[in-house]
Computed example of a mutant assay.
Amino acid sequence: MKKKWYSFLLIVVFIMVGLVGCGTVGGDDESVNKEKGSASGDTVTIAHEMGETKVPANPKKIVALEFSYVDALAALGISPIGIADDDDESRIIAPIQDKIGEYTSVGTRKQPSMEIISSLQPDLIIADLQRHKDVYEQLSDIAPTIVLNSLAADYEQILDDFQKISIAVGEEEKGQEVLEAHKKRIEEIKSEVPADEVRVVLPGVVTPDGFFAHNMDSYTGSLLESIGLKNAIQDGSDRYNKINLEQVVEFNPDVLFLMQAGEKTVIDEWAQNPLWENVSAVKNDSVYTVDRDTWSRFRGLISSEAILEEAVQQLYGK
């Protein structure tokens, strides 16, 4: 009897172990899926400029505190619920307005409203290192927050951060497809620049108070260099330089792309100075006024293509 009883117990134990083993395997798979963020309610860990943050695998309500993040989301077919648009919806450039539709303004990029952001109950906030590192903890108390380096980024950094954003919003595969299509388009535009192009270009923001030149390491400068348009300022010590008329004459760009802020700028004053006529770009009638929002503020895939298309059209009529 005892032997039969022990045999019965052993059979029961083996069955229970088998069932527990099956359950454990299923549990491990679920744990892995959560780490990868493959199911609703799961999270994915994103490394960023301020550390690591667990964000929902597929966040639906996203607040973007820089225009480059709006560009990235629009390229992925995602509409943010909140945007730091500097309290001016006209700053959202047309090709992106068409993709994102309505949103709530959360104030300026420099000082976004914590109250408005909180009221939106976001799943994810995307912030900028230079502008928002001091309020990172406040933002993180509202929702999972990742911090990227938009304001000080060059073109390559913008591409890298686009990939990071695509992972954070659960669109890594689509992000790769969008990025490949973007790179193909950039190569097409690059092919329109003559191989023997030797002119140097200088993009800069012009305001009533000054000329802020963008060097070869700036976003716009590095973007133009990516298709073979050499920047007049090859000194990498400061990406954004406030320079005077004498320095413009010294750098002597063959082409000027002026991102104009306001109806009257320092250029109106300089135009009365004989030195202005000594700049090659002025002599050659190669001074182009371009949209500041597109050329300076947005810094993304959509705006990059728009910038280069305009540059090539201006320079070569293509």
Results as ranks from 00 to 15, higher is better:
Ala84Thr: 00
Ser113Thr: 09
Arg185Trp: 11
Glu171Met: 11
Ile125Gln: 07
Lys184Phe: 05
Arg185Ser: 14
Asn149Tyr: 12
Gln138Leu: 09
Gly170Pro: 05
Gln157Glu: 09
Ile96Asn: 09
Lys110Arg: 06
Leu124Ser: 02
Glu173Tyr: 06
Glu115Ile: 06
Gln111Arg: 15
Val135Glu: 02
Asp123Pro: 02
Ile96Glu: 08
Leu179Ile: 04
Glu171Val: 02
Phe162Lys: 11
Ala84Ser: 04
Gln121Pro: 11
Ser118His: 10
Lys174Arg: 13
Ile146Phe: 03
Ile186Pro: 11
Glu137Ile: 03
Ala181Pro: 05
Lys133Trp: 06
Lys99Gln: 14
Ser119Arg: 03
Tyr103His: 15
Met114Ile: 12
Tyr136Thr: 06
Pro144Ile: 04
Glu89Leu: 04
Glu180Asn: 11
Asp88Glu: 07
Ser118Tyr: 07
Glu115Phe: 14
Glu172Leu: 05
Thr145Glu: 02
Tyr155Lys: 09
Ile142Phe: 07
Val147Phe: 02
Val178Cys: 13
Lys99Ala: 08
Asp161Gly: 05
Lys164Arg: 09
Val178Asp: 08
Val135Leu: 09
Leu139Ser: 12
Val106Phe: 03
Met114Arg: 11
Glu172Val: 03
Thr145Pro: 00
Ala143Trp: 07
Asp86Phe: 02
Leu148Met: 10
Ser150Ala: 14
Glu177Trp: 08
Val169Met: 00
Ala84Gln: 01
Gly107Ala: 06
Ala152Gly: 12
Ser118Thr: 06
Ser150Gln: 14
Asn149Phe: 04
Thr104Asn: 06
Gly101Leu: 01
Ala168Trp: 04
Ala143Gln: 02
Lys184Gly: 09
Asp161Cys: 12
Val147Pro: 01
Gly170Arg: 02
Ile93Ser: 02
Leu124Lys: 01
Glu137Lys: 14
Met114Leu: 12
Met114Pro: 00
Ser150Ile: 06
Tyr103Ser: 04
Ala94Phe: 03
Tyr103Asp: 04
